[in-house]
Design a protein around this nucleic acid. Structure first.
Length: 424
RNA sequence: GGAGAGAUGGCUGAGUGGUCGAAAGCGCUCCCCUGCUAAGGGAGUAAGGGCUAAUACCCCUUCGAGGGUUCGAAUCCCUCUCUCUCCGCCA
């Protein structure tokens, strides 16, 4: 959520910033609604104040044994007037909140212009795509011929966009997850967390998947509905909900491995085959809570932590700064890390690292106490994949394939594979 | 699933219709006292929102959540959620 005070005071500046995303914010309509809110709120609070004062007078008079009938008569219609005002105020406030919850975050000035992923700016790249002497196979062909990826079996059980993995390949994904967790815990200073995979609406409003993107989520039909998490960002970031951190508690860095569940509504034609886009996938997620001044530096270090994983796996990648039109709803700035996939002969997203500044914090009431003023102020939140395990598996398979269809296991993963060096 | 108890400020815990945003204690902050420490004395110490140039005044809201009764609700009524104890079941 954008600061409502900023919306009031600088609505046209906000509109100009959001226009970079291609988002149209009707500042005039907002401001007229806001003006209505102001007069209604001032009026209603005035009536509440009168009610409180008269209740006290009546109480005092009664204690003195005086006749309170005249006082009661004087406030006879106050309750009705108040009820009318309160109802009207609540309605306007709800309308304003709906608008505010629907507004994307302001973009950082360093975000490059552009409308879609074609305009993203490469920041750096690492490693060289290998020149394979034979025709590179994709992970589907590799996995199926090894007998270790079974999309048909998954389809029988659950339909499309699911997979069954078997044997050393299933273990390889687990090895990747373990390796990533251990690296972040031991080398990057993260605290490991285990979190719920089912969350309530409020948590998703906090991280801004709701109310706008409900169709992307799986929802249970229980009495109070649960949503399956689309990313560990949701439960982990909500650890800061309604919290006031003391000065020495920040920064915080959390890592979590979870499955992620996405309906993929609206992506029907995309990546229909293989592991790239599944309803269920494994991911290691990094989350930072920092003070406002530190969030841009934290974005750089978080992105670096994800890059370290790919470097240790010897996977070629590049880092791109998402352009204005491609930055996600709640982020102020995002780097995507794209790994080279020989089977597709292109770079594909394997991690997305975002600074949300106070956007999620405001929705969650996530604060820290400023030691100088003693007052609570909003923290900044960040998150990024460190990295997506399913896609990392794809990258390892395709980049480490041999001519005979066997797959070399990266050295850093071999300890997690019982010393196995090749999957054949 | 059955039976019972409970939910109050950072913590413990009073408070069953009126001046209660809320006693007391603990914790924390500042000051005094003290050679240091310990002990002691005094003052302060919730969050969100409105108004505003203001993190100054002032005002509003909040005692698990939502509704109701009332001039007035932490206190009375209804619904829900959660926590704890015992029994059953289960990983």
């Amino acid at each position: 959520m954008i600061d409502p005070k900023l919306l009031r005071q600088s609505a046209t500046d906000v509109a100009a910033n959001l226009a970079r995303r291609g988002y149209e914010f009707d500042a005039g309509a907002y401001l007229s609604l806001e003006e209505r809110r102001k007069s209604l709120q001032v009026e209603t609070e005035q009536l509440q104040s009168e009610r409180n004062a008269s209740a006290k007078r009546i109480g005092a008079a009664k204690a003195e044994g005086e006749d309170i009938e005249p006082l009661l008569a004087a406030v006879k219609d106050l309750g009705d007037r108040l009820a009318v005002g309160e109802t009207a105020l609540q309605k306007v406030q709800a309308e304003l909140r709906d608008i505010e919850l629907d507004l994307p975050n302001l973009l950082d000035q360093s975000v490059p212009d552009g409308t879609d992923e074609c305009d993203n700016a490469e920041v750096r790249s690492w490693g060289e795509p290998a020149a394979l002497v034979f025709n590179a196979r994709d992970h589907i062909e590799l996995g199926e011929s090894l007998g270790m990826l079974d999309f048909e079996a998954a389809s029988k059980i659950s339909g499309s966009r699911f997979v069954v993995m078997k044997g050393p390949l299933a273990r390889l994904q687990r090895a990747l997850i373990q390796f990533m967790l251990d690296t972040h815990i031991e080398e990057h200073g993260y605290e490991e967390t285990y979190v719920p995979y089912l969350v309530q609406e409020q948590a998703l409003v906090g991280t801004s998947q709701l109310p706008k993107f409900e169709e992307d989520l799986f929802k249970t039909e229980t009495e109070t509905p649960f949503y399956l998490i689309p990313t560990a960002e949701v439960p982990v970031t909500n650890l800061a909900r309604d919290a006031i951190f003391e000065a020495d508690e920040l920064p915080k860095q959390y890592v979590a491995h979870t499955p992620c569940f996405r309906s993929e509504a609206g992506s029907y034609g995309k990546d229909t085959r293989g592991l790239i886009r599944q309803h269920q996938f494994e991911k290691v997620e990094l989350v930072h809570f920092v003070i406002a001044d530190d969030s841009m530096a934290a974005l750089e270090s978080l992105t670096g932590h994800a890059e370290t994983i790919l470097q240790k796996l010897q996977l070629p990648y590049r880092v791109v700064a998402l352009c204005a039109g491609d930055v996600g709803f709640g982020a102020t700035k995002t780097y995507d890390i794209e790994v080279w996939l020989p089977g597709q002969q292109k770079y594909r997203e394997i991690s997305s690292c975002s600074n949300y500044n106070d956007f999620q914090a405001r929705r969650m009431q996530a604060r820290r106490r400023n030691p100088a003023s003693g007052k609570p102020e909003l923290i900044h939140t960040l998150n990024g994949s460190g990295v997506a395990a399913g896609r990392a598996l794809v990258a390892v398979m395709e980049n480490n394939q041999n001519n005979d269809g066997s797959i070399r296991i990266p050295a850093v993963l071999q300890p997690y594979m019982g010393g196995l060096q090749v999957i054949a």
